[in-house]
């Protein structure tokens, strides 16, 4: 059921939700950008609607709530292991359509990919999603081409409409709180983007043969392997393990998992000192093809959701969408055969 609400009405809803949920939303963190006197838009718990940044795309994605950048899994002593506590509260995440499509990718990797990831699952089972209506594409978005611009599988939606807010609710348990705090009922269709400035065309006939293309070489020198594109990507799920032994007593410690990046040094290191993808162009090739080729081959849909954050963040102005659009040239160059 859809509702029209005042700001106070939305805040009353948030207040009731807060009794059982931590509500995560993109917020503007003043002065937290890398450059002085610039802001960073990140996910953080909120209590009022005023804290939510509706106007800008978040710099870092919602995924940090589901897969924290650094997460302690368990503590160990000499002969015992104790699991680290999971979140004490359920979570609500406010996010745009492309990002809610990304949740499907995360689920695919962490839950449906043969083995279920226990730590992901224990958070994921307690998360609800509130869709933020998205009227206009931002600079580097290409959601329409990735078919992630619309989504129906939200628990509720929230969108600013002039001085008021529209909410659509699809989760039965929330109906009464919305009923109580809404001004009136109405049919609510969350806004969605229909046109983007950036377009991508993933060529037919893509195969691993494009690995041999020369298109990757320019990134050897252009890319600085910082990994920002991975950390802001809502669908990158790689992690690495760290066993830490506390310094005061080297026999006890903890195991953490932290986000890993296929662009950063060390990712392909193997026992014996080898490292497979040493050139940045080859790392770029791996990342790009994973997003628009390998993943789809295995799971049936593209990993990339077209949010464009990798383009937004790259300090070297390397455009992911631009690279996708070069794949057509690469296919021709290596004499691609049609696998699709």
């Amino acid at each position: 059921m859809g509702y029209l609400l005042t700001k106070e009405g939305v805040n009353a809803v948030l207040k009731e939700w807060a009794e059982s949920y931590l509500i995560y939303a993109p917020v503007r963190m003043s002065g937290k950008g890398a450059f002085s006197e610039t802001d960073s838009i990140r996910y953080a718990p909120i209590t009022t609607v005023e804290e939510i940044e509706f106007e800008k795309k978040s710099d870092f994605p919602f995924k940090e709530v589901l897969i924290p950048l650094s997460e302690t899994l368990f503590f160990f002593t000499e002969d015992q292991v104790t699991e680290a506590d999971g979140p004490k509260k359920n979570a609500i995440i406010l996010l745009r359509s492309c990002d809610l499509h990304s949740v499907k990718r995360l689920d695919e990797i962490y839950i449906k990919n043969e083995y279920e990831d226990y730590y992901y699952k224990r958070i994921r089972d307690n998360v609800k999603f509130v869709l933020m209506g998205c009227k206009n594409a931002f600079e580097n978005c290409f959601c329409v081409d990735m078919q992630t611009n619309r989504i129906e599988t939200y628990d509720a939606s929230l969108e600013k409409k002039g001085d008021f807010y529209e909410m659509d609710n699809r989760f039965a348990d929330w109906e009464t709180v919305l009923e109580r705090n809404g001004m009136s009922r109405r049919v609510v269709v969350p806004s969605y983007v229909t046109e983007t400035n950036v377009h991508v065309s993933i060529p037919q006939g893509l195969s691993l043969d494009v690995s041999r293309s020369k298109i990757w070489d320019e990134y050897d020198s252009r890319c600085i392997n910082c990994g920002r594109c991975n950390f802001v990507c809502p669908t990158c799920t790689c992690f690495s393990m760290q066993d830490i032994f506390y310094t005061d007593n080297g026999k006890i410690g903890e195991r953490r998992r932290v986000a890993a990046s296929c662009m950063v040094d060390g990712y392909t290191d193997v026992a014996g000192g080898g490292a497979y993808r040493q050139k940045n162009g080859q790392r770029m090739r791996f990342r790009v093809l994973h997003k628009v080729y390998d993943f789809k081959k295995r799971f049936g849909f593209h990993m990339c959701t077209g949010c464009g954050r990798c383009d937004d963040v790259c300090p070297e102005y390397i455009s992911f969408s631009d690279c996708i659009n070069k794949l057509g040239i690469a296919v021709k160059e290596v004499g691609g055969h049609n696998e699709e």
Binding site: A34, S40, D59, F60, C226, R228, F231, A259
Partner: peptide
């Protein structure tokens, strides 16, 4: 100098207020 802040890809390092 802030080089750590500029280098950090995850925003773990930020500038003081």
């Amino acid at each position: 100098c802030g080089e750590c802040v500029l280098a950090c890809p995850t925003g773990a390092w930020t500038r003081g207020e």
